[in-house]
Amino acid sequence: MHDQAISWHAAWPAPRLSARRNPDRFIAITAWLGAIAVTTVFFWIVVDLIRLGGAQLTPAFITNAPTSAGRAGGIGSVLVSTALILGVCLAVSAPLGIATAILLAEFTREGNRYCTAIRRSLDTLAGVPSIVFGLFGYAFFCVYLRMGFSILSGGLTLACMVLPILTRTAEQGLRSVPDEYRYAAAAVGMTRTQTLRQLLLPAAMPGLVAGVVLGVGRALAETAALLYTSGYADRMPSSLADSGRSLSIHIYDLAMNVPGGEPNAYATALVLVGLLIAINATAVWLGERWTHRKLSTA
């Protein structure tokens, strides 16, 4: 990938011509202008988020319950609901996704019909729009399985949604472990279960963690799939059968249905974006540390 590290500036010293007669100059200027335009919009969004949301963002905002439909008060109960929804989602999708990844990467040959079918169905699932997941979750979990608008329904709907990305990333993680590990394990007579537990899973940990984190990120950002599965209730949930709104739904509701809700919508958006960035960063770091420790003591 870095093979192409030719110095472009040295390879092609720009001849001094006007931009109109020199295509290189013309593309250079257009590319810089395009990049500057995108950067400007990026900072416009970031500055708006901080300017309009930063003032409300106090420790009390994080812990207090929302009052007056969210206009005042904080997001305490919303954070708890969000965490519960994510918990349900991960409790189901992480074991399923990682087990499927192990099956696809370690226990089958290329071209196995069963695995091709699983892979194809995951590819299809990855393309389903989130509102369609919402329709499915409503029809299946809320109505057919009689879970109603609840944290359980929302979490399970999200679990279906994040399965493809979680499985695929975990599979890539396992595939990136060199085959020498497997040969060595087989040579010393380890069973496949032992090989998996003591060698492959620790070695593939960054990939597995990355898969789970990408799944969490996708679930945390999701709104449309939750509208008709976890519902709108903004009170503190007392069980998984209660309806509870996620941070994303809180933002939507404040922006669209609550006049004067915008300041708190922005503050909540700031929390959500901050969480997404923080989760991503810590997971990358954790994955790296974990591999070092496991491999050096194994």
Partner: peptide, 21 residues
């Protein structure tokens, strides 16, 4: 056996989605 079963559940999700729609 466990892995195959998990794979089956994972693969069945998309069928379930399509069936319910």
């Amino acid at each position: 056996v466990g892995l195959r079963a998990s794979g089956a559940v994972t693969g069945a999700v998309v069928l379930l989605v399509i069936a319910f729609l």
